[in-house]
Every structure is written in structure tokens, then in C-alpha cells.
């Protein structure tokens, strides 16, 4: 492990100092994330980029498990809409999940995540689609009546102007009232990525 260099394509790393300056990561963190990025990006095709297939493989260790939510997260990582994630995309998107990232950033990302149709609103049919995806994934059966009750109650609380869709302002207020909704937006591992990926030390270009 880690000793095979002959066929590994070296990927030019976006300036770690620049990435560290615009994120909650240190330069060492960025270098450690580069090790993670390289591992993921070469898991299927060694092209220095993460495809959707490689993304799913890294999360689930399973190429087949394509899912509404992973697909959606991949699309949000892929900010340049190239169908692949480069290292800069990867670090900037993971920054949203950093425990120190501002709540506003997490709220914005979660809004985009749930606004499946990119209309600028989280609409009722999108919420229903996501609930059905969750129930299918978890193999839970709920009656249609129960699902409707949950959605009705949610929109009563989250959509005070009762226009049937949640705008960014309403979402922000709803999240402030229900901060546990941001739990999925924080990855505790990111507080100490250099411990998770110590091999970066051997490749580090900085002394700190």
C-alpha cells in the first residue's frame, strides 16, 4: 500500500495555500485531503478527477448504490457542472461540512440540496420525493396518510406564508428553530483530517 508509484498519474494540486486561505482548513489539512482525493479519483479511472461512480464508491464502497441524495450531493460538489469533481471543488465543498464552517454556509448548502429542481424554492413535491427515497432506502413503509400528515405539519411550520413552497428566508428561519436539521451538514472527521490521512506528511511541501 502506498508504495506503487509506477502507474499512478500525478494530479497537479491546486495551490494549498490559496485553498486554505478561503476555507476552514489549514495547509496541512488541504495536503491531507489531497491524499484522500487522489485515492478516490483513481478508484475507477486514474484521471485525477472524481466521477459520480467513484464518489459513490468512496462513500458506500458500492458502485451500484446510486441514490437521489448522493447524486444530489455530487451535483453540488460539481460546481463547474463538468460531470466530475476536481480537487478545488472537493476541498471547497467539504469545507461546508467542516465543524467550524459558518451556519449560514450550511443553511445555504442544505437549501440547494433539498431544492431538487433548482427553482429557488423547496416545494412540496420535492419533499415528498425525498421522503419516498428515504423510505425506500431504509425499507420503511409508511401509509400515504402518514406521509401527507408529516408533510402538512412541516409546511405549516416551515412555510408561514402558506404558498406551498419554502423560500430561502423561510428555510433559514426554520433551521434556526430546528438546528438538528443541520446535523448532516457537519462531518466531525474534518476537524482533524491530518490524523485520518497521515501519509500526506511524506508528500508535504510545507514545514509546519
Amino acid at each position: 500500500m502506498g508504495c506503487f508509484h509506477s502507474k499512478v498519474r500525478e494530479i497537479p494540486m491546486e495551490d494549498p495555500f490559496a485553498l486554505a486561505s478561503e476555507t476552514a482548513f489549514s495547509v496541512s489539512d488541504v495536503e491531507a485531503l489531497y491524499e484522500l482525493f487522489k485515492n478516490i479519483s483513481r478508484s475507477v479511472t486514474d484521471d485525477g478527477l472524481i466521477s459520480k461512480e467513484e464518489f459513490q464508491l468512496a462513500i458506500f464502497n458500492n458502485k451500484k448504490k446510486e441514490n437521489l441524495f448522493t447524486s444530489r450531493i455530487f451535483d453540488l460538489f460539481d460546481v463547474k457542472k463538468k460531470g466530475v469533481i476536481d480537487f478545488g471543488d472537493f476541498v471547497r465543498a467539504l469545507n461546508v461540512f467542516h465543524p467550524s464552517a459558518p451556519m449560514e454556509v450550511k443553511i445555504e448548502f442544505s437549501f440547494k440540496l433539498y431544492d431538487l429542481d433548482n427553482t429557488g424554492f423547496i416545494e412540496r413535491h420535492e419533499v415528498k420525493q425525498m421522503i419516498n427515497a428515504l423510505l425506500c432506502e431504509a425499507e420503511i413503509k409508511l401509509s400515504e396518510e402518514t406521509i401527507e400528515t408529516i408533510i402538512n405539519k412541516t409546511f405549516m411550520d416551515a412555510d408561514p406564508n402558506q404558498d406551498g413552497k419554502i423560500d430561502k428566508y423561510e428555510w433559514k428561519n426554520f433551521v434556526y428553530e430546528n438546528p438538528s436539521l443541520l446535523k448532516v451538514m457537519t462531518l466531525p472527521y474534518l476537524r482533524d483530517v491530518t490524523t485520518a490521512f497521515p501519509s500526506f506528511v511524506f508528500h508535504s511541501k510545507v514545514e509546519d
Binding site: L36, I40, A58, I59, F60, N61, K65, N67, L68, F69, T70, I73, L94, F97, L113, Y114, V127, M130, I131, A133, L134, E137, A138, T149, I150, I151, K153, T154, D157, A158, F174, N178, S180, L181, K183, V184, L187, Y189, V193, A196
Partner: peptide
Amino acid sequence: NSGSSPAIINAFQLIGMSSCLDLSGFFEK
């Protein structure tokens, strides 16, 4: 009986239970 209606989980709490929203897999190898 406190008289309050039983709490209903909100839709986003339910959605948040999806393992597919959890990126920990990147770090758990």
C-alpha cells in the same frame, strides 16, 4: 396526560435519516 398533541417528526428530520446524506464513508476505510 399533559394534554399536548404527540410530536410529529418533521419531513426534514425524516429525510436527514438517510445514510446517503452521510459523507463519513470518505473517512471510514
